[in-house]
Amino acid sequence: MYEAVKRKNDPLVMNREELVEAYFAGRLSEDEARQLSDALQRDAAFAEEFEVEKDLQAALIDQSKADLKSTLVNLETEKFNKNQKSTGLKLWRYAVAAILIIGLSLFGALFIGNQSTPEELYAENFEPYRNIIAPVVRGEHAEGLLEKSFALYERGDYDQAEKDFSKLYEATGDGYLLFYRGNALLALGRTEEAITLFKSHQETRDNFYYKSRWYLALAYLKLDKKADAISILEEIVANNSYNAEKAAQLLKELD
């Protein structure tokens, strides 16, 4: 009631609550934005409160980004998987791929005489997943541990990066660190440890889930656990998830 009266008396002045509400609804006018920033400057406690609210907003956006990404991945699988394959272009590409494979296997049969071992296939396919967490800005010094660890990772210092990821995970509990630590361990040849990490990462089912499945399949290849690798690769192909084309290729070669 009080607010209604107040607004009637002075339509230009919104109270703080209303300003905050309009801010999060994304409908602050320029004038209101000024009023809000004045109020924030005048009152430190209000400003601190508002910072927490903005942080919460950022956290919620981050969470829902992961949800949207999985929605899109699923949409891709369900809706486009079949259509894609029926288009002429796609068929043409398959034909070329088939000819190449036939050609290469003839070549292989003539000159090598045997197929690649799982470990060789691993070596051909493994490449640590790129850093999309903390982009390294050229010519600038990394500040926090997060930036430092990812700079090490990009540089190929997996040993130190792995240790830092572990420390960061202890501190933050952020799932993607398990994924990147798994990648660093794979690169270091510590495959069994990497497998444990990918498995616990996959329990979080975050943005990196499907990528994590791919790397777990590679890790099994490295250990010559063909059956385990094949079952994950088949799942990747069926879902048309991350690296589905490469997975299909690997399955053929493992056959």
């Binding site: 927490v52 942080d55 950022a58 981050d62 999309i132 967490i133 982009p135 997060l146």
Partner: peptide, 14 residues
């Protein structure tokens, strides 16, 4: 650019 969460934001999310 990809954004990264601050420590407080990570804690809030958790």
């Amino acid at each position: 650019e990809e954004t990264t969460l601050s420590e407080r934001q990570i804690a809030l999310r958790r």
